[in-house]
Design a protein around this nucleic acid. Structure first.
Lengths: 130, 130
DNA sequence: CTGCACCCTGACAGCGCTGTTAAGGTCAAA
DNA sequence: TTTGACCTTAACAGCGCTGTCAGGGTGCAG
């Protein structure tokens, strides 16, 4: 698959796909003429990247995290450092999640009491999935 | 209180406190000589700002959200627009939270199976900052 | 009055991310 | 062979955020 198709199927702009590659995530091979040629696995990885990006992770964090997520078989890697890195990243995620949930609750609570349109009938704001 | 103390107590740098003010969040009054003079309420607001910032919200989003969080009495405000804005922001938060939780779970799962601390060592981490 | 710690504004600079544009190559279909 | 869609790299540009530095004022304590 070439980059345009990957872009469509991963919801990542062409620009960003190239950027991620420049940063060392995602390494599609190339056709003889230099076109990027993505495998289905590459597409999977692209989607994971988007997920991590949506979660607010930096490219640098993804760089450490992706090799873990991409395959279920951990290999090589200096373990102490990696483990520490992952634990740190999880801690950061937890902090962020907690902050977001608190913020969400406050906004939702406020919304609940909003003296708006005719009345508050269907207060649909306890959705949890996306 | 002056800015340095607020900075200490809110964990927001002096630079960022001024930045938030420039952006229209937080409006401490000034002493005759021009010093910012923060009230305890301002400190509270600063902490909320930090929380929202930690949650990954932009200043622009905070600008819409803060007046809701800051006081329990919603007033004025073009309600339809505000309501829509808040709901959108909540949806965005939900998406982000969901992505983060999924990412967290994957990392944690990987960490679980890490063949470490008493095991093989090997290659160097390719820390390449392209 | 002198120091020193703190404050002020303004500007420059850098990072991370993202879009856009320019100049040009590839490929398949007409 | 020409056309048009798609690809390539490289560079510029902008936004949001954040640190830092310069040049200067304020305020309190010695």
């Amino acid at each position: 698959m070439q980059i345009g198709e990957i872009s469509d199927r991963s919801d990542i702009s062409v620009r960003m796909l190239r950027y991620y590659e420049a940063k060392g995530l995602l390494r599609p091979h190339r056709t003889e003429s230099g076109y990027r040629d993505y495998s289905p696995d590459d597409l999977e990885e692209a989607r994971r990247i988007r997920q991590l990006a949506n979660a607010g992770l930096t490219v640098e964090a993804m760089h450490d995290l992706l090799p873990c997520i991409i395959s279920p078989e951990p290999t090589f890697h200096p373990c102490d450092r990696l483990r520490a890195r992952l634990e740190a990243e999880i801690a950061k995620l937890d902090r962020k999640i907690s902050d977001m949930e608190r913020s969400r609750a406050q906004i939702a609570a406020y919304l609940e009491g909003l003296p708006c349109e005719g009345r508050r009938d269907s207060a649909i704001l306890s959705s949890e999935t996306a």
